[in-house]
Simulated assay, not measured.
Amino acid sequence: MASPTTTIETVTITRPLKVIAFICGIIVIILMIMGLVSTDWLMAAGWRQGLFMHCIEEGAPQPLPFNMVNPAGCYPSRDAAYIHAAAALCIITLLTNVVATILTGLGLRSKDHHTKYKYYRFGVIVMGLALVCITIALIIYPVCFALELNFGNRTIWEFGWAYGVGWGAAIFLFGGVMLLMCDKESEEIYYKERKIVHDNDSRA
């Protein structure tokens, strides 16, 4: 004689917003590495300046910026406080964003909705810290450079692609933070239960 049985199926829901936030974190890692290794933050005729090095091109017009007397080549960054501060903040941005991206990835992998929510909560805090750091770095760099512009010995200065990459990283960080903060209430619902009635045949 057939008897009904109830099967409870658990379905895990992955929020697409969190996946996009994870992708944003990966993009920021790539952008920050590009910005840190580049010397194209600030440029003028025959001069390129990054966070860790500055380069003098062959045949650069004299006098060189900031009263430099070095021949053509690349050298460690000038001993300017704002350059060191911006470099330190960018490194902190990279490291904190790596942590935030890992936390977001762990949240995506977790099957327990309480653990998942904790990963996202800590991830948005750490990613928010990264956003604050890169924003401060991008502000103090041009502001402090303007204070020493009289020593630049150039009439035209421009910010290079690496500085723009920094703003790109800030935009993706902002997007990641917003995506991790969105949909908090429904984020608590990760499991749907369905009751399926089977007619079991007791015959062999």
Rank of each mutant, 00 (worst) to 15 (best):
F145E: 09
V132C: 12
H54K: 11
K192L: 11
E58W: 01
W161A: 02
H114E: 15
P63V: 04
R203T: 15
G105M: 01
G160V: 11
T14C: 07
W47N: 04
Y163N: 05
R203M: 14
I125N: 01
V28M: 07
D201G: 07
I156S: 15
Y119L: 02
A81M: 12
V99K: 08
V177C: 13
N97V: 04
I56M: 02
I27T: 15
E193S: 08
V98E: 05
F122L: 10
P65E: 05
I33R: 08
Y120V: 03
L64I: 03
A2P: 12
H84A: 13
A162D: 03
T6P: 07
A86Q: 07
A130W: 03
H84F: 04
V177R: 07
T12D: 06
V37G: 06
A45S: 15
R121C: 05
P65Y: 08
R48N: 09
D112T: 08
M53K: 12
G152L: 04
T135N: 13
R203I: 14
Y75M: 07
I20D: 08
S202W: 14
M43D: 05
L51D: 00
A169L: 11
Y82I: 08
A85K: 10
S186M: 04
R15A: 08
G35T: 07
P63D: 06
M43I: 14
I26G: 10
P76H: 12
A130V: 05
A85S: 09
A86S: 13
L31M: 14
S38G: 03
Y117F: 06
H114A: 13
I20M: 12
Q49T: 01
A85I: 12
V19N: 02
V69P: 00
I125S: 04
V37F: 05
S3G: 08
F66C: 02
M43C: 12
A44Y: 11
A162R: 11
S202C: 08
S186T: 03
V143L: 15
L103D: 01
T155A: 11
L129P: 00
A87K: 14
P71C: 09
L108D: 02
I140W: 12
G176L: 11
N150V: 10
I26H: 07
N153V: 02
T14V: 10
M181W: 05
Q49H: 03
I189D: 12
E58M: 09
M1G: 15
C182Q: 06
I23D: 06
T6V: 09
D183R: 00
W167T: 03
T14F: 06
